[in-house]
Design a binder for these strands. Structure first.
Lengths: 113, 113
DNA sequence: GATACCAGTATCATTTGCGATACTTAGAAG
DNA sequence: CTTCTAAGTATCGCAAATGATACTGGTATC
């Protein structure tokens, strides 16, 4: 089922696969501070992402075990997404990425002049 | 030119884009300890990756400024790849990813039983 | 009785990424 | 004069990921 023989063995290959969705990091970062509902999540995402794609990426993240989907049976529906246990552990990666990302952005703006 | 309005502004969106290549993390991890030549790099990669793809991903990384390409004018050619300054800073992300990746692998093997 | 809300799914079209294969350059070795 | 080396590029085709659009269900509100 896995296309790469190192998936589940090498931490880099495994992480790469899990993070391969175009919006994965942004979604995880929005979930860092607690549960968020579907439509609220979409509102906080860049406009260029449609709810179709958000739905698919969330499904993948839930499937991969990083995110929990909590359904409150109400009408209109109320569904909350939040980080799972292993998802919460991912926060340290997000933190390192935020730091580096900002350094990299600084590097980019230096070099565009 | 950029498909996402937050590229160059949001650290997560920017990182996501840079890390989107299928083998990016693995390549960067192989370059962590100093310069490596092209063919040597290929030998250390999983066999399922061809040199065509390696070439493309390296080009992207060089283009994005994470990797330096050093040509020694010899025959046969001798080309070394190594982390740039901003690439070296990425090591802290690699370190966090390695830790989390291993935790995630442990989580996966718990749940397969 | 039409419209809005929330949280989606179904389907199609397009784009992008990746893998496979063939080809290149320039010299050295057999 | 054929083969080997290192480090690639060019081209093609397939598969996967994404985007666009339309549709759903049940209630409440205008």
């Amino acid at each position: 089922m896995q296309q790469n023989e190192l998936f589940g063995k090498c931490p880099y290959v495994t992480s790469q696969k899990v993070l391969s969705g175009k919006w994965t990091l942004y979604i995880l970062h929005l979930l860092q501070d607690g549960p968020v509902r579907f439509n609220e999540l979409q509102r906080r995402m860049p406009e260029s992402m449609t709810h179709t794609t958000l739905s698919r990426q969330l499904k993948t993240l839930v499937n991969d075990g990083l995110v929990l989907r909590r359904v409150h049976s109400e009408i209109p529906p109320n569904v909350e997404y939040e980080l799972s246990e292993v998802g919460v552990k991912f926060k340290s990666v997000l933190s390192a990425l935020e730091t580096w990302g900002n350094e990299y952005i600084a590097y980019l703006s230096q070099n565009e002049k």
